[in-house]
Design a protein around this nucleic acid. Structure first.
Lengths: 243, 243
DNA sequence: AAGTGGTCTAGACCACAGC
DNA sequence: CTGTGGTCTAGACCACTTT
């Protein structure tokens, strides 16, 4: 039951309600794009005042999980919408134009994790994982090589789904199919000299300077769902605003 | 006067009040660390209800301009506190330890802007600027070269102040001395081959891959106060979390 | 016309810091 | 003890979208 805990030690009501709404979104009670119940309806359901549900929903808006539209209602955000302000993979050329128009799947297969690979997920060697290599192409120029490692136990059978759909956004597929929301990402960016393999794929000279982005993607529980290494042609910028 | 506009076309009261509080903070009415008036006092002053001032202050908290402490009051944040969660210059080695323990000033002088330099600030050629080169050193290893271009008209005489104090944080000096708050930063990161000059300063081989970070720093009005190029040794990561 | 979110008010009670 | 911010309530009016 979604009744609220009013004991003295409990969390504030608006935090309890926010957590419950996140749970209900991630379990697929409302699909991305679908209207959630109104503030007054939720207030009645949880037995609190409208101001309290408003505060809970404000927090969801803050986290980009949800969008409000006056006169219409509140809708769950899709992964793509959620990350739009950042272009999710934050790559643009010197003129600020988006790069990466097409995405080519070079390989995609289920595997057993090495000890190092399993460590990203806090699992043990041999845990099921899925390994993907994709190339992002702008016009005719390959600009980014993506080596993706997905947590197989949370995404059963995803390899064949990816090979079927070959989607641009892995996160959107995971969200639709497994109700896993990626809500946080950690990037580590550094400059490296391209090795033979990457240089051939990017069609540049071995040893040329490229960006290497090491990314971890987290679900709302803080579990790592994906580890991804991006190798980026040096004509492309990684952009970042912060306040 | 800080009276509020209640006409139909006006912005919501909480937004007007937020804007006015930003103005009062940036004009130095309250120093970083100092207590602002309480929510009830501000409500009385602006002639609105407490809920409205709370909403305005919530927005300041959101922007990291201000910190609330229950039972004590609300204090203005210093630049250093404001950017703490990001380590402001986001550099750490592979173990996640901070790099850049010492900062060496190599040069610092007032100059007239070239057309390209002035363009960063939306000014014309010949506008007063200040050029600074600093080197960040971790242990005995130079890890970052900073080439900084400051807007001279907004920071009069800053060259001699910098040479006196040689501060680690230029932003903190600007904040204290000129009441300019840096509230937003835009970074563009790419990989380049080190040129002779940078290679010599970083004590690496010319042509080695380094990170180049191109940064613009903005005040609350959206004016560019600084343009900065960071050249970063490739043992150092640029880290970034986002949601 | 009905329902939604956006704004604003006025009050209550609580946890906490400082004197 | 006083004053602070943190939570919660209950209601009003408005702008807007949908039916």
């Amino acid at each position: 039951m979604s009744v609220v805990d009013r004991s003295a030690e409990a969390l504030p009501l608006h935090k309890q309600i926010k957590a419950d709404l996140v749970r209900r979104i991630t379990t697929g009670e409302w699909w991305p794009g679908e209207l959630m119940p109104s503030e007054t309806a939720l207030a009645a359901e949880y037995g609190v005042s409208v101001g309290t549900t408003r505060k809970a929903i404000d927090a969801l808006v803050q986290d980009n999980l949800v969008v409000r539209q006056r006169g219409r209602g509140t809708t769950v955000n899709s992964t793509r919408q959620r990350y739009k302000p950042y272009h999710f993979d934050r790559f643009a050329n010197a003129k600020g134009e988006r790069a990466a128009e097409t995405t080519l799947y070079r390989s995609c297969e289920a595997a057993k994790a090495s000890a190092a690979e399993a460590a990203y997920f806090g699992l043990s060697r041999g845990a099921p994982v899925v390994k993907i290599r994709r190339v992002r192409v702008a016009g005719k120029t390959p600009v980014v090589v993506e080596d993706i490692l997905l947590r197989g136990d949370r995404c059963p059978n995803i390899a064949s789904l990816l090979l079927d759909a070959k989607p641009t956004s892995v996160y959107a597929l995971i969200e639709r199919t497994f109700h896993i929301l990626i809500i946080r990402v950690e990037d580590k960016v550094r400059a490296v000299a391209a090795d033979e393999d990457i240089a051939a794929t990017l069609e540049i000279a071995p040893g040329e300077a490229i960006l290497e982005v090491d990314r971890l993607a987290f679900d709302p529980a803080g579990d790592v769902i994906e580890h991804r290494i991006l190798s980026v042609r040096n004509s492309i910028h990684y952009t970042n605003d912060f306040t």
